[in-house]
Write a protein that binds this DNA or RNA. Structure first.
Lengths: 118, 118
DNA sequence: CCAATTGTTCAATAACCTTTGAACTAAGGA
DNA sequence: TCCTTAGTTCAAAGGTTATTGAACAATTGG
């Protein structure tokens, strides 16, 4: 893990909410949740924003403590920090994901066929 | 009810999260939750911001569908839209309020002694 | 080594957010 | 009627956010 992440207790509720309060980032988180356990690289999110813009949004998610980003080769493997978020804010992530799943204003979670190769 | 409110299904998740992602508004919501059932007027929130600024934040909360504001005389009576929020985003409000209660970075919920007179 | 792939950084821009004080409206009481 | 109380509106300032394209760095495969 090369990139800077907050520790679990540095994660602030207001910050997490603010970061999730953006449609692009909410779509990213929903997509991560739909593939939970599988680390996804940035290119998996290109439906939601341009490459440059993804770099920005993924950094916001990481800095807020919502995601963990691991550098592997030229890739960044991204996962939800479910354990830390659940410990810190029980039930929050689940209710956000469930609500996002019902939200028609968000782009649908697409089905790329190829997962990241381990 | 004079002031404009979104209907329950106009309430957007991203917007609710964005609006709650501000420490002042989070403190207001937490305070409302701590007195749930009791309509509070604006002056009850003067610990959190100036009068002018409260007007701004309370409008944001109302426009996002988080609170309901009723004009009574020169007062505005403010309540949480728990029913609508729970129907739309089950569990969200409770987990936010619970998390906010544990968050040391937010101002404590103070105990004014006098409730609004019915 | 060369080229392609992955993603970051930078500067610029436009939009939006928060906060302020001064001026305002509207209702209620003396 | 006059004053007070409760909140709103306005314009301005300063800050942050989201988005873009061009340029960059780093790893990997041929």
């Amino acid at each position: 893990m090369t990139l800077p992440h907050p520790t679990a207790d540095q994660i602030s509720l207001a910050n997490v909410l603010a970061v999730l309060g953006d449609p692009t980032r909410l779509a990213i988180v929903r997509y991560l949740a739909s593939k939970e356990g599988v680390p996804l690289n940035c290119s998996r999110f290109l439906d939601f924003a341009s490459k440059t813009n993804l770099s920005y949004h993924l950094a916001k998610l990481r800095e807020a403590g919502v995601t963990r980003t691991e550098a592997v080769g030229t890739s960044r493997l991204i996962t939800l920090r479910r354990d830390d978020l659940d410990r810190r804010f029980p039930g929050l992530l689940d209710s956000v994901i469930a609500a996002a799943g019902d939200d028609a204003s968000l782009p649908a979670v697409g089905g790329h066929e190829i997962e990241v190769r381990a």
